[in-house]
Design a protein around this nucleic acid. Structure first.
Length: 733
DNA sequence: GAGCACTGC
């Protein structure tokens, strides 16, 4: 092996190194700890800025204390007077929970009292809550019910640099709310008034009606203050977008991380990562290694290679413990990264992007970064989403190297040259420019924003993407001829926390009399990696799946999983219906074990199943609140399949003479994915829920239908042409 | 007969 010095040039200084050397703070009183945070010295300045301007941009690095402290400063400064709240958004659920818990402790209260959090399936707030931490998506849902966000005096958007799709929509939305709340004194809640500002949404009307129950007038909630907190230095972008807002910098507290680059480009980054791992292992002092890879498959092969080559290590060398982590891995296996390496061993963690920001693994001293990431891309012309391996951005590379400096000074080995680093994009392309926007457009319409193309996006998505989404929503009937949200269809669809197509399917199913079955199918379609197939047990896993399989297809197979789970695990305690929260409450350790064993024996990912059960319960709640009945079609699966055809007619495919399939709306040639129960069964006509592009185009989540159902159930889309002839064009354009 | 980064409602 070449020596470390020959493989890497060391960069003497840079943005990752100039972070202040932290001190060991030991166990001090909470208050003292708070006072010692870098942000404490600028507390007054921050409060003054929020008081005098509409929007403040706070740039703070890791460890500045901005997330926990700033809301408390604002609270002390009186921003919660008169029953108003401060809302703080986070991109992830865990962050909302952990930060709220920490702040509650600092304020000497319990979570759910003055400090609370609100995330999907879990609202831990009460009427006395003043600081509310929540996911960004949750605030968007709240805006549907209260478009002026009248309960909030301040909204803090944290981790704004991550630019989640929800954060980006909130940006434009909150700017609008600020404008509308500027009217001082009393505001007249009336349809005319609402019309005049173009925000006459059904939800707002409801609010008005409720308010009108007492008075025609409602006290104005005063101006809405906005604080945008970000870690990157894209200050200008944020400040320009928020009408020249001031930016305040807050120093972070991180240990320095030395950055190394290769002298030449690496032809094979896996091999380079492998070599570097062993070099660190042989030459560097104790401390765990974190390697960023692009996906499960890559992690699995790297794992094999490392184990194999580790056997050639000298007898006297430290042992090397290899631990993989990625989102689809069942939680039992994920937990292994948090266990400290045994004495006499060094841990190597092979991770996807999950270790970049979503979870923090203790003990990391070395980071190996090949500089690549698997990212979603969207082609608005074909409507196909795909995943591709692309170079990371500079900001991402910095975030990755930072993972080595959480507890002590660390080192980061970038498997590319310093020149290549210089050529990387500064920041990652925001998600809103990389995916299908059907749901975003539906939500905007429901918020009363009719001119979606003219919406004030910080980064405008491609025009074609928006137009495609509008067309899609029109086809589904969510929009009327004027492009406005239809009533009740579009309005109801916007209430479901689902993709528009799935929301429509729920509504269609209540007419077909199979909403109970559709509820189960949609819940299962909403979770990923339900079946767990470890590489060394593919046969066993496939056999286990057979007991759930339906010859009609994957949708009924999904329903069978839930059915059999209820029968065998829940034992019909609640009449065959279960939800995981009631399970949690009453589950003794023993029941938990029964559930876990059942999942393991059936090669099912317990986390995914639990989530599907939660989603089912939530969607059922929405159905009931709309007065839509939950009806079962019993054993008559023909009804259910016809309902699938009526709902997913846009995703129909027919077998061609050569055995491949032709997607009827996009005219693409596709194949049935081998993970489908219909693979190899050669059905003549199917509906599908996913089109994934890898080496070929595959359709997944498929159910067999009769091709004659299409012109019958979707006459507006399919003409009653000669569907029996596969070569004939069967779609009207 | 194959492979799906990560979030979120």
């Amino acid at each position: 092996m070449p020596s470390m010095a020959s493989r890497y040039s060391q960069r003497p200084s840079g943005p990752d190194d100039d972070k202040r050397r932290s001190f060991k703070d030991g166990r001090r009183a909470l208050l003292e700890q708070r006072r010692s945070l870098p942000i404490a010295s600028v507390a007054e300045k921050l409060v003054e800025h929020v008081k005098k301007s509409d929007t403040l941009v706070v740039i703070g690095e890791t460890g500045s204390g901005k997330t926990t402290q700033l809301p408390q400063f604002l609270h002390s400064a009186g921003f919660c007077k008169g029953g108003m709240m401060i809302g703080i958004t986070q991109p992830r659920r865990v962050a909302a929970i952990t930060v709220a818990t920490r702040v509650a402790e600092e304020m000497g209260t319990e979570v759910g009292k003055e400090v609370g959090y609100s995330i999907r399936f879990e609202d831990v707030t009460s009427p006395v809550t003043q600081l509310k931490y929540m996911t960004d998506g949750m605030l968007l849902r709240e805006a549907l019910l209260d478009p002026l966000l009248s309960k909030y005096s301040v909204i803090v958007i944290d981790e704004a640099h991550e630019r989640t799709i929800h954060t980006d929509v909130l940006f434009g939305l909150l700017k609008g709310v600020q404008e509308r709340r500027k009217c001082a004194g009393f505001s007249h809640i009336h349809d005319n008034k609402l019309n005049s500002i173009g925000q006459n949404t059904a939800a707002e009307k409801q609010v008005a009606v409720v308010s009108n129950g007492h008075s025609l007038f409602r006290k104005s909630t005063g101006p809405l203050k906005l604080v945008v907190m970000s870690a990157t230095l894209d200050t200008k972008g944020f400040c320009d977008y928020f009408n020249g807002a001031t930016a305040v910098y807050v120093q972070g507290r991180q240990f320095p991380v030395q950055i190394f680059y290769t002298y030449t480009a690496e032809a094979d980054y896996l091999e380079a990562a492998l070599l570097t791992t062993f070099q660190i292992h042989m030459e560097e002092s104790l401390g765990d290694i974190l390697v960023f890879l692009t996906g499960q498959e890559e992690i699995e092969s790297m794992e094999r290679l490392l184990r194999e080559r580790a056997t050639h290590l000298p007898e006297t060398a430290l042992k090397l413990l290899v631990v993989p982590i990625y989102a689809a891995l069942p939680s039992e296996h994920q937990m292994r990264v948090f266990q400290p390496a045994p004495v006499g061993a060094r841990k190597v963690i092979l991770a996807t992007n999950i270790a970049e920001a979503s979870l923090t693994i203790p003990g990391i001293q070395y980071v190996i970064d090949p500089g690549l990431v698997k990212a979603r891309a969207y082609n608005p012309h074909t409507g196909v989403e795909s995943l591709a391996i692309v170079p990371v951005s500079k900001a991402q590379a910095q975030q990755r190297s930072g993972r080595a400096g959480r507890e002590a000074p660390g080192k980061c080995f970038r498997l590319y040259t310093e020149d290549s680093f210089a050529k990387l994009d500064d920041t990652t392309v925001p998600e809103i420019k990389r995916c299908n926007l059907a749901n975003v457009v539906l939500q905007l319409k429901a918020l009363g924003i009719d001119d979606v193309l003219g919406f004030d996006f910080m980064d405008k998505p491609c025009r074609t993407t928006i137009v495609k989404s509008l067309e899609h929503l029109y086809t589904l009937g969510a929009l009327n001829d004027e492009g406005k949200l239809s009533d009740p269809l579009g309005f109801r669809m916007s209430r479901f926390p689902l993709e528009p197509l799935y929301a429509k399917a729920m509504l269609v199913s209540s007419e077909f009399g199979c909403s109970k079955e559709m509820l189960a199918a949609i819940a299962m379609l909403s979770v990923e990696s339900l079946f767990y197939t470890p590489r060394d047990k593919i046969k066993e896993a496939n056999n286990a799946k057979k007991r759930f399989a339906s010859q009609d297809g994957d949708h009924i197979t999904f329903i069978n999983v839930l059915r059999i789970y209820s029968l065998e695990v829940d034992e019909g305690q609640r009449g065959g219906d279960v939800d995981s929260s009631t399970l949690d409450r009453r589950a003794s350790k023993k029941t938990e074990k029964v559930i876990r064993n059942w999942c393991t024996a059936n090669y099912i990912n317990g986390r995914s199943l639990r989530r599907a059960i939660d989603i089912r319960k939530q969607i059922q709640g929405h159905m009931e609140s709309m007065g839509l009945p939950i009806i079962s079609c019993g054993e008559d699966m023909l009804v259910f399949r016809r309902c699938l055809a009526a709902s997913f007619f846009l995703n129909a495919a027919r077998r061609q003479l050569d055995g491949t399939y032709r997607a009827l709306s996009s005219r693409q040639t596709v194949s049935i994915h081998p993970s489908s129960v219909l693979h190899g069964k050669k059905p003549e006509c199917v509906v599908f829920n996913e089109l994934v592009r890898t080496n070929r185009s595959y359709i997944r989540s498929i159910t067999q239908i009769d091709s004659l159902w299409l012109p019958e159930l979707a006459p507006q889309y399919y003409a009653a042409l000669d569907l029996a002839n596969p070569t004939q064009r069967s779609l009207q354009s």
